[in-house]
């Protein structure tokens, strides 16, 4: 195991233990939740907008470290960015941030938060969820 990997692992464990932007916005502009029935991960995300950008975000949930840490990292990635840009954000951007290789099972855990956020953004914009996320959304019971 390289020290480089170790560093990533430290970051993930840190986000898991001290999640950023944890909680729920009182007056959100967008909201969604989802769960991964395979491992019982649960998440809800609320977002607030200022014009075309995401001005604030909160998440709540429980489950495995990967799902919770990935969502915490996601909140840091998206805050202050354009709504449309994040609604179109690729999986790879988040996975690069997570940094460690994930098996397909863990990949679903890692992508749960991004899926939930996409549902919230597309729903509030009245646009359909892109197809790849709609398919994943069935597995992840996104609502």
């Amino acid at each position: 195991m390289s020290e480089f990997d170790d560093l990533y692992r430290e970051v993930i464990l840190d986000h898991y233990k001290s999640p950023r932007h944890y909680g729920r916005l009182e007056r959100p502009d967008g909201e969604a939740e989802g769960q991964n029935p395979l491992c019982g991960d649960e998440l809800s995300i609320s977002v607030a907008y200022a014009g075309d950008t995401i001005s604030d975000i909160r998440f709540e949930g429980r489950g495995c470290a990967i799902s919770q840490a990935a969502t915490s990292m996601l909140t840091e990635l998206v805050i202050g960015r354009g709504i449309a840009e994040v609604a179109a954000m690729s999986k790879d951007e988040l996975l690069a941030e997570i940094g460690i290789p994930l098996t397909p099972v863990r990949l679903k855990c890692a992508l749960l938060g991004l899926g939930v956020l996409k549902v919230a953004l597309h729903r509030s914009a009245g646009t359909p969820l892109p197809e790849e996320w709609a398919n994943l959304g069935q597995d992840l019971e996104l609502r």
Partner: peptide, 21 residues
């Protein structure tokens, strides 16, 4: 601790176990 995390950390230690239903 979620069983997936248990298995993940054990994997880092070279110990292969299964986690799931």
């Amino acid at each position: 601790v979620h069983p997936h995390d248990v298995a993940q950390i054990l994997d880092w230690e070279g110990v292969a176990v299964r986690a799931g239903h």
